[in-house]
Each structure stands twice: as structure tokens, then as C-alpha cells.
Nucleic acid binder design. Structure first.
Lengths: 250, 250
DNA sequence: CGGTAAGTTGACTCCCGTCAACGGTTGTGG
DNA sequence: CCACAACCGTTGACGGGAGTCAACTTACCG
């Protein structure tokens, strides 16, 4: 496959900006530089770290999370292929949360200096990264709405819509199906539910044919129906080319 | 009072950058330009709007919020004096949430063009604004933790700690007390609780002497004790000068 | 084939929501 | 100056969604 179009970070950022061939080349080179691997349930960054690199997921799933002192854990967001783990872009020095892998993860570590060089020569790339961080903020807002207002069914349906659509944006869906490498415990930590209740909620979604979930494969036979069940409005993902005014020819 | 130090936006951004006298002057002029007033329960921006200005709270409280179709409402964050209502900085074009006033609000509307001029000549100011948006993202993350993991007591205690410390950063506390112009319904919408339960939770916090709340005045006799009850760790507010490396003399 | 992690189920409990009524305060207009 | 309305806070009774505990099954893996 053509690396210029298959790299998930490019696929995603192209939702937000029109890149020139050179832009893509630069992104590809940066992402190919310090590629790392990590197994499942590892930490890519820990609360308190002062990161000197920008970490970019190439394959696999990770998540941001926070622990409370008594062991409770909340997953704050999922980092899918093409996502930047830390959108602070070096402004914030100390991590206030951790980033851990949920599956084996391949990621690129781009050193601070490299980012600064890119920022100087390719401002459109940096702008696209800022865009991405704003979309992440919008996703966080929607999670707040889910956790605050939606019941377990709606919340689960909403999350599955979000994941499916985000994966689709980077070419990781297959028709009505996608990979869902999350345990029910992972879903529980993300949605503020108990494992038992996640299990029951999934079964209800299955029994109403809104989803099929076998092993790691999630199938959504009728995305519109699932969206309706969740009161899901995809606006907040800003995947509609809202940012394409960051034009390569400006 | 000296306007160079009394403007809440300057007080706040100075947590994140060392401004020169000229920086402050520029900020003050920009904030003095298009000052507007709005009564309580009004909308400063609505979901779907394509804002052409940056709105900066000078006095009063506002909030971001989202409505679900069936009338449920979630407050996503509180905008206090010194806060920027929309940290998109014109990258995102369409609002995916609304911003409404909770009290009478005075705010400055800074036109897009003005921001672009400032960005060209005073990059440190824009960097401080980006920094602020990252802190806002950190606050959102902490709300997710609260809504997902903390029970009503902890959640309420945590929110009151956050508000008090944020107000203190812009000089709006008076010893152990601060203004809290929120109705219990407002608190309920922010914390995903019912009004009735908010009422009971507040009473429990009062009966354990962790807070005193009379009318619109919140008193926290022992902030440390309240923080402990909430498992509140102020790191995430990044008010410790973590960003002061954005130095005026760089 | 044992061992461990993940998924499933039932019984019971509890935090928090809902409903409904009442009291206090403010402000406004007759 | 009082009456009334509107809003906010408070309280009690009751119900339900989700948590907890515990046991069991299934799947996976060396």
C-alpha cells in the first residue's frame, strides 16, 4: 500500500487540512523515525512524567486514564491508530494523567526538536495537530454528557458509535464491522459502570439487534438505528471537512 | 486599581507566561474594545453558531452546556472571570455546544482579525491562550473522572475545591470564602445529579463542617480537609507556574 | 491439560432519582 | 403596603438503575 495514504495519522489529519505531497512526506518521515512497540497493558506515559517526545499511535489501541488512590480507575479517552497520545505539544510539562496500551501498540516517538523543526517549516501540519487536539476536547465534552446524563444503554451505544466512526475515518472498518479489542472491564472503566452491568448492557444491545459482538469483532448492522438509540450526533467529531479551510494553497 | 494587574484574563494567563508590560497593554486594549453585557440565563453562543469573535469573561459566571433532545442538560464546564469561552481560536468553525450566562456577565468580544494581528506580533500571548485551552482540557478530564468514579459527596467536594482554587487564581476569593452564584439546579446539571440529591449532599457537607454555604457565599474553613474528602489533587490545574517557561525574555 | 483471564448469571443491596408537598425569599404591581 | 407569583431550597416516601458478591462457564495459551 502507498505509505503516503496508508499512514493513519495522515488519513486522520487530512480530515482537518489539505496537505501537499511534501507535507505528507514530512509526516511520514517523522512517523517512521523512532518507531516503538509495546505489549498490552503497558504504560506509554505515566502521570508525573515530563515527556520529551510526541507519541503517535500507528497500530493498536491505547487509552488515557487516571487512578484514584483507592484503586478506582477511569479511562478518559481511547487512543486509536492515527491519534496523538499527548496533544500538549510540549506546552504542558508534567503529565496529569497516564497513557497505557490496551493491545500491543506500535507508536512513533517524535522528539521535541523534530516537532519544533516541523513547526518552523510546515505550519499547516502543526495547525492540523492543534485541530486534532480541539477535536479531542470535543470528544471529552461528549463523554461528560454521556457520564452525566445518559443511562447505561445510551452510554454504551454512544461509545460504540463514536469508536466505529473514528475507526472508519482512518480506514479501519470493514463494512459494518470493526475490531473492538476491549475487555468488558475496559469498557466498564471507560463508562463508569461495573463489569457486571456492562455485560448486561451489551446483552441488551445484542438482543435488540443493535449490535453483534463476537470475540473482538463488533458489527453494527444499522448504524443509524444505533445512533438513534444513543441520541448520537456526529457533529462533535468534526469529520465533515469543517477544517479543510486549512488549505495547502493558502 | 491598576488595570494592568486587575484584569482577570491577565491574572490568569500570568500563571502560564511571563508577560512584558507591552503584552499586558495589548491584552488590556483588546479586552476593553468590544465590551458587552448580558443578563443571567442568556446565551453567549449557541450550538451551530460560527463565531467570528473570541469571547472573554470579565465578570460574572457562564457555562458551556449541551442539551439532549429530550430536555436533559449537562453543564460541561464553568467559565469564570478571566476565562475564554471558546478556546477554538477560530480553528473550529461550528460550535458543537452552547455557552450560557449563569449570572449577569460582562465579556469582551475580540474580533477574529484582532486576534490574528495579536498572533502575528505577540506570539507569547497566543501561546498563553493555547496553554489555557490545554488546562481547560485537563479540567474536562478531571470532570470525567468525577462523573465516572466519584460518588455524590466526593464529586461535590471536588467541584467546590476546583471552583475555589480557580477563583483564587484570579483574586476572587476573600480569605476562606468566595462567591458561589449557582443554584442547586445548576450544580445538579453540572454533576449529573438530581436537584434533590444535590441538596442532601450539600447538607451532608455542611453537617460535617467541610463547607459553609449561606446564600451565595461559600466558605471552606479547611481547604485541605475538603481536598482530602474529594481526593482532590490540584496538579491538573497547572497553576504552579508549570508554564512560566514561556518567558517574556526568550 | 492445567491455569488464568474473560465472560455470564443470579441474588441481594444501596445510592440516587422521582414525585410531591411545603417553606422561604425576592420582586413586582395593584 | 400588601398580595401574589415565581423561583429556590428543603423534606419525606417510594422506586429503580446500577453496584456488589459470589459462583460458574467459556475461551485461550503454553
Amino acid at each position: 500500500m502507498d505509505p503516503l495514504t496508508s499512514n493513519p495519522i495522515i488519513l486522520k489529519l487530512e480530515q482537518f487540512a489539505r496537505f501537499s505531497a511534501e507535507d505528507k512526506q514530512v509526516l511520514n518521515l517523522a512517523a517512521a523515525e523512532g518507531v516503538r512497540q509495546i505489549g498490552p497493558r503497558g504504560d506509554i506515559m505515566r502521570e508525573g512524567d515530563r515527556p520529551q517526545t510526541l507519541n503517535l499511535i500507528l497500530s493498536g489501541w491505547a487509552c488515557r486514564y487516571k487512578h484514584l488512590e483507592d484503586g478506582r480507575r477511569q479511562i478518559i479517552s481511547f487512543c486509536l491508530p492515527g491519534d496523538v497520545c499527548d496533544s500538549h505539544l510540549f506546552l504542558v510539562r508534567q503529565m496529569d494523567h497516564s497513557v497505557g496500551s490496551l493491545t500491543p501498540v506500535t507508536f512513533a516517538q517524535i522528539p521535541r526538536r523534530r516537532i519544533e523543526e516541523i513547526a518552523a517549516k510546515y505550519p499547516r501540519i502543526i495547525q492540523a495537530l492543534w485541530w486534532d487536539s480541539l477535536v479531542n476536547a470535543a470528544i471529552q465534552r461528549e463523554w461528560i454528557v454521556s457520564l452525566g446524563q445518559r443511562d447505561a444503554m445510551e452510554r454504551m451505544a454512544h461509545l460504540l458509535c463514536e469508536i466505529f466512526i473514528r475507526l472508519r475515518a482512518v480506514g479501519l472498518t470493514d463494512g459494518h464491522a470493526c475490531d473492538l479489542p476491549l475487555t468488558q472491564a475496559g469498557l466498564a472503566d471507560a463508562m463508569g459502570l461495573s463489569v457486571v452491568h456492562v455485560n448486561r448492557t451489551l446483552q441488551e444491545l445484542r438482543s435488540t439487534k443493535l449490535i453483534a459482538l463476537k470475540g473482538r469483532t463488533l458489527t453494527i448492522p444499522d448504524l443509524r438505528a444505533l445512533q438513534d438509540a444513543a441520541q448520537f450526533n456526529p457533529n462533535y467529531l468534526h469529520l465533515d471537512g469543517d477544517g479543510r479551510h486549512l488549505d495547502a494553497n493558502e
